[in-house]
Write a protein that binds this DNA or RNA. Structure first.
Length: 804
DNA sequence: AGCACGCCGACT
DNA sequence: GTCGGCGTGCTC
């Protein structure tokens, strides 16, 4: 019996979301393994597509004639059996295509690049041969399109004069450098030196170097250059067979220029020691457990992570540490590199694709045992995981917004179970879901109640902005905040100012007629972008110039609205003449590395105020920051999102922790229009537990998470009536399979009812336990395939984080 | 996704 | 009478 392979092909469609069976050519039988990428012929024209081998088995009696695998793209499996299995599970759970899941697990460069070529296989008309093919025997598809000869060529293909050649290319390129090795003995070099002309100084130098090397050592061209040996000298040396040249695979090292001083473990306080020993126990006994490590800012969670990771490494296993993208600062990386040196691989969006691939290979080859990275690092190819840590577990960025819409926390727990290792969720302000599970005993709660140095939590003042307005202060700054800022400037201390941008955008409105510039395709207002001096739609990318006068009433009083960081900066500069401000927002941090640069400048005290949006709330640790101001604490509170109080509480608590990290006492000023709101009041008192109780009570009353799970079905269509009709139909399809406990909300039009010229509707299903729901949704997707092809788009979001 | 097959309108 | 439109269905 011959062997066949089950392969998931790179054709992201519902009908092809299943394994296809291919014959394994004899030459590949000994090398092919599950987890390898392959090139296979697919479909009528047998175009070549990339695929993943998921299974190898004996061929069973089958009527369909199988095609054979074209070639292998890897010499080793790039996905382990674990990841293959995880991908299958994720596809089902998140209603995504399996191929998408596998592609998400791997660096972008490993995604195939496809190209089509036209090859001449028989005589073709002379004119075509010379004008189009220019005498060569092949032509790229794009070139044929450009020359407008595709129809002619397709005709020729039917006559078997030319053929269409499909090419699958791997974008993954291993970087190599040229190195040289001595080829002769010590004595031989001695002899050569004798015969060198006295003015051949460069050559003599080269001989000296070669002579000092033994056969085990090698030098790169760059290293030789540093000694003063130029490429031309090397070339002549090679010609005379003084040395040999070879290529060595290297890693692009994004931290090449940084040095890391080795740090030692710090002594743990009682809370930390307790947490450590609980986690250590599961490591030692190869047990899976989920811990919620809840510790106030400054309570030393990171030290607990570092020491548990150390144990895992000593045991010969790997560690996985997830950090939100914006918290993945050089400071953070430094702490890990300093403790574990080269054993750390870092994955984040700031790396080039090549760099990401190299970090991935380091992990795959088990050269790096510790992986620190953002969301997608949860798929790091560690073969033997000893611990998975998710820091700031409440962060919403752990949920991917595109397909596959996975939550890193769920994937972590899946992998933790697979590897029988602990999963640690760390946060100062855990998500209600996690804390509720810990309270129920599903997770083990570990608390760090004290700050490491016993510094007190900073004093938080909440300023009622309505009172300020009553007193005639209509600026964005309360008197208290302004006085506070002045005081810091005088004392040469630093301040951080946070602008809560959630629910805000700068738009253009006419003061005379109230006209707001909207996107022509979508029902939302366009946003002002000062950097490009244009108006942009955030949904479809539509762009137009800023209107100088109102398009409706021709009035010139068309003004910009919204509280942008630029506006705050401008006002601040006017109010505080001697303030030096570093502004950090999407505009100033767009360029690669600029984020770090700005933070470094602030750390070097080149400015006394750091002004920014959410991105400054994380992980910054500057001893000279003694004042943190929140300009608008409650902009998010008004949003129709059941998590808005939770998010506000988390944000305020987090920024509060940024103040007074050093020996100097810190102060926090929160400006608000509803200061009595419990999210603000409990944040002021640093009281998570009370917030938790109050919020849980509300969630219970309103029947939301964590009491209920959520599933969102979105339907869109060009025609508003069709979209409305379809979603009602689909809801009716699901309804009978639900138990009485499930609650259906909607269907309703989405808050942004129209984008890309399509109308959107959604329905939310709240449920506690619905065994059949997932299966029923899959049924819905399968049965509506035709309608989907005809323009009714359905999208399912399992446990959505946003639904406004 | 992409390609072929199939059944209805404007062309030599 | 044919060329070609894109609706429909299948891909190991």
């Amino acid at each position: 019996m011959s062997l066949v392979a089950n392969i998931i092909v790179d054709v992201p469609a519902l009908q092809t979301n299943k394994p296809y069976t291919y014959i394994i050519p004899e030459v590949l039988t000994d090398v092919i393994q599950p987890g390898m990428r392959v090139v296979v012929p697919f479909g009528k024209g047998s175009r070549k597509v990339q695929g993943f081998v998921v299974e190898i088995k004996e061929q069973t009696a089958t009527e369909i004639k199988l095609k054979a695998i074209e070639s292998l793209m890897d010499s080793y499996p790039v996905l382990t059996m674990e990841l293959l299995q995880l991908g299958e599970f994720l596809a089902y759970q998140t209603f995504s295509f399996q191929i998408k899941c596998y592609q998400t697990m791997l660096p972008a460069v490993m995604r195939a690049k496809y190209s089509k070529k036209i090859k001449i296989i028989d005589e073709i008309p002379e004119t075509l041969l010379w004008d189009i093919f220019k005498g060569k025997d092949e032509l790229s598809w794009e070139e044929a399109e450009r020359q407008n000869v595709l129809t002619d060529l397709i005709q020729l293909e039917k006559e078997d004069k030319v053929e269409i050649d499909y090419d699958v290319k791997d974008k993954a390129v291993v970087k190599k450098i040229k190195k040289i090795k001595p080829a002769l003995s010590f004595e031989a070099y001695e002899e050569i030196r004798e015969y060198l002309r006295s003015n051949a100084k460069k050559q003599k130098l080269f001989i000296d170097i070669l002579q000092s090397m033994d056969s085990e050592t090698s030098l790169s061209y760059a290293e030789l250059k540093a000694f003063g040996v130029t490429p031309s000298t090397i070339r002549s040396g090679l010609e005379k067979n003084w040395c040999d040249v070879f290529h060595e695979e290297i890693y692009r090292d994004p931290f090449a220029s940084s040095t890391f001083e080795k740090t030692r473990p710090l002594p743990l306080n009682q809370d930390q020691a307790h947490a450590f020993s609980k986690i250590y126990q599961t490591i030692k006994e190869d047990e899976h457990d989920v811990f919620l490590l809840q510790g106030v800012t400054g309570s030393g969670k990171t030290e607990v992570y570092l020491q548990t990771i150390k144990e895992v490494i000593d045991k010969g296993e790997g560690a996985l540490m997830l950090v939100p993208e914006i918290a993945l600062t050089p400071q953070m990386v430094q702490r890990f590199k300093s403790r574990f040196g080269d054993e750390v691989a870092v994955l984040h969006s700031g790396l080039s694709n090549g760099e990401k691939y190299d970090e991935w290979r380091k992990i795959e080859k088990e050269e790096a045992k510790v992986v620190v990275g953002a969301r997608s690092s949860i798929f790091a190819p560690i073969k033997n995981i000893g611990i998975i840590i998710i820091d700031e577990e409440h962060e919403t960025s752990y949920k991917q917004e595109e397909f596959p819409k996975y939550h890193a926390r769920d994937v972590a727990i899946w992998r933790g179970e697979y590897h029988k290792c602990p999963v640690v969720l760390g946060s100062a302000t855990p998500s209600l879901e996690s804390r509720a599970r810990a309270t129920k005993g599903v997770y083990s709660l570990l608390e760090l109640k004290h700050r490491v140095n016993d510094y007190p939590m900073p004093a938080v003042d909440v300023i009622d902005m309505r009172e300020e307005a009553k007193r005639g202060n209509h600026s964005m700054f309360s008197e208290a905040l302004l006085t506070g800022l002045k005081k810091r400037i005088d004392k040469q201390e630093q301040s951080v100012l946070l602008l809560n941008r959630r629910g805000f955008s700068s738009f253009v409105m006419c003061r005379d007629c109230g006209f707001v510039l909207e996107c022509p395709n979508c029902d939302i207002s366009q946003t002002l972008h000062m950097d490009t001096r244009t108006m942009k739609c955030h949904y479809c990318g539509h762009e137009e110039s800023i209107p100088k006068k109102c398009p409706k009433c021709d009035s010139r009083s068309i003004r910009y609205y919204g509280t942008g960081t630029q506006k705050v900066e401008k006002e601040l500069n006017e109010l505080l003449i001697d303030a030096s401000i570093i502004r950090m927002d999407v505009d100033t941090t767009r360029k690669k590395g600029s984020h770090e640069k700005l933070l470094n400048r602030f750390a070097n005290k080149e400015a006394n105020i750091l002004l920014g949006t959410q991105m400054i709330a994380k992980g910054l640790d500057y001893p000279d920051v003694t004042l943190v101001g929140v300009i608008n604490a409650d902009t998010a509170l008004g949003l129709p999102d059941f998590r808005s109080a939770e998010k506000t509480f988390q944000l305020l608590t987090q920024v509060s922790g940024r103040s007074g990290r050093g020996e100097k006492e810190g102060q926090v000023i929160i400006q608000s229009y509803n200061p009595e709101h419990y999210a603000i009041q409990y944040a002021k008192q640093h009281d998570y537990d009370s917030f938790y109780k109050r919020e849980m009570h509300l969630r219970h009353l309103s029947e939301y998470s964590p009491y209920y799970y959520l599933l969102k079905i979105s339907v869109s269509h060009e025609n508003e009536m069709t979209a409305a009709k379809k979603i009602r139909q689909y809801t009716d399809f699901i309804r009978p399979s639900l138990s009485e406990k499930a609650i259906i909300l909607g269907p309703t039009p989405k808050s942004i009812a129209r984008t890309h010229n399509r109308y959107h509707f959604q329905v939310l299903i709240k449920y506690k336990q619905e065994k059949e729901l997932t299966e029923k949704i899959h049924q819905l997707l399968t049965e509506t395939q035709k309608e989907q092809a005809r323009g009714t788009f359905i999208s399912i979001d399992y446990q959505p984080l946003d639904f406004i």
